[in-house]
Design a protein around this nucleic acid. Structure first.
Lengths: 145, 145
DNA sequence: TAAATACGTCAGTATGTCTGACGTAAAAAC
DNA sequence: GTTTTTACGTCAGACATACTGACGTATTTA
C-alpha cells in the first residue's frame, strides 16, 4: 500500500511539478497554473468554488487571482442570479496559455494511459475516486456544468 | 483524461495535505513528514538518493534534515563502503512518529483500496507507474534494498 | 431595516523552496 | 603521491506560497 503512496507522490510531482517555460514567460508560478487549470475545467466557477477545489485560503487565492486578472488571463464577472458571486472564466489569452501548457504535458499522460490500457485506467479512477473527498469527485461546487 | 488529472490532484491533497496533530506536536511541517516518510521507505538511503526522490535542492533538504536530526528522529552515519556518503535511517523515536502518522492516514487508504478491489488497484499502479519517471518507479537510488 | 453572505483587501507571519558561494572529507584518477 | 572529483554541509539572501486576523463593501435574505 505504501508503494501506492510512493507512486502517487512521484506521479503528482511529474504532472503538477513541472516548471514550464510558458509559465515563466508569463511571469506566473505553479499556483497560477493550478488556478488556471481548474478555472478552465470549471468555467464560471465562483471564487468560493475555486477555494474549495484548491483548498487554500481566500487571501492566498486572491493574490494569485489578481495576477491572473492583471495579466488578462482570467475574466471575472458577477453571477446573473446572485450578483454577490463572481464567476471566473478564462479569457481567450488565458485559454491559449492553458492550451499550450496542457499540450506540453499531454503526451506523457496519453502514453501512460495508453500503455496501461483502458481497464487499468478504469481502476486508476476507481481508486483515486475513493481517495479523493466525496464532494470533489465530480465537478466543483459553484461551477456551471 | 483531464478528469484523471483532477482526481490525481484531489487524491494527492487528501493523502499528503493533511495537517497532523502529531506533526505540530513535534514542531515539524509537511516537508519533514515527506522526508520522514521516504527515509522510512528507504532505510539507509543516501542524501543524494533522498534528493532525487523529493526533487528539491540540497540546501532545502538540509534545513529539513537538520531539524529531524536535532529532534532525534533520524540517524545519519557514513556508508561503510564509501565514507563520503551518509546513510539515513529513522531512530526509534522517528520510527514511532512515522508509525503514528501512518496509522492516522492508513484507514482512508485501506478503505479506498478495498472498495476499489484488487483489479482496480493493479490498474491504479500501472497507470501511476507509467506517469512517474522511470528511474523512480522502484526503490530509490542509494537505498539498501 | 437588520442580518447574513460573498467577496476584496491590508498587514504581518510562517514555511518551503531557490540561487550562489564556499568549505571539508574521502575516493578516484593521474 | 599529488591532483581532481565526488558527496556532503553550510552561510547568506531571496522568492513563492500559504497562513491568521481584521476590516470594508455590495448584495441578498430575514
Amino acid at each position: 500500500m505504501k508503494q501506492g503512496v510512493d507512486l502517487l507522490f512521484h506521479a503528482f510531482l511529474d504532472v503538477f511539478g513541472q516548471d514550464e517555460a510558458a509559465l515563466r514567460a508569463a511571469k506566473l508560478g505553479r499556483a497560477h497554473r493550478r488556478a488556471l487549470y481548474f478555472i478552465a475545467r470549471n468555467p464560471g466557477v465562483t471564487v468560493a468554488g475555486l477555494l474549495a477545489i484548491l483548498k487554500i485560503t481566500k487571501q492566498s487565492l486572491n493574490r494569485v487571482l489578481n495576477d491572473l486578472l492583471d495579466g488578462g488571463f482570467v475574466e471575472r464577472r458577477a453571477a446573473p442570479n446572485d450578483r454577490r458571486m463572481r464567476q471566473l472564466r478564462l479569457s481567450p489569452k488565458g485559454a491559449q496559455l492553458e492550451t499550450a501548457l496542457w499540450d506540453a504535458q499531454r503526451p506523457k499522460l496519453v502514453r501512460a494511459f495508453r500503455e496501461a490500457g483502458p481497464d487499468a485506467v478504469a481502476g486508476f479512477r476507481r481508486v483515486l475516486s475513493g481517495l479523493a473527498p466525496a464532494e470533489k469527485r465530480n465537478r466543483a461546487i459553484g461551477s456551471i456544468p
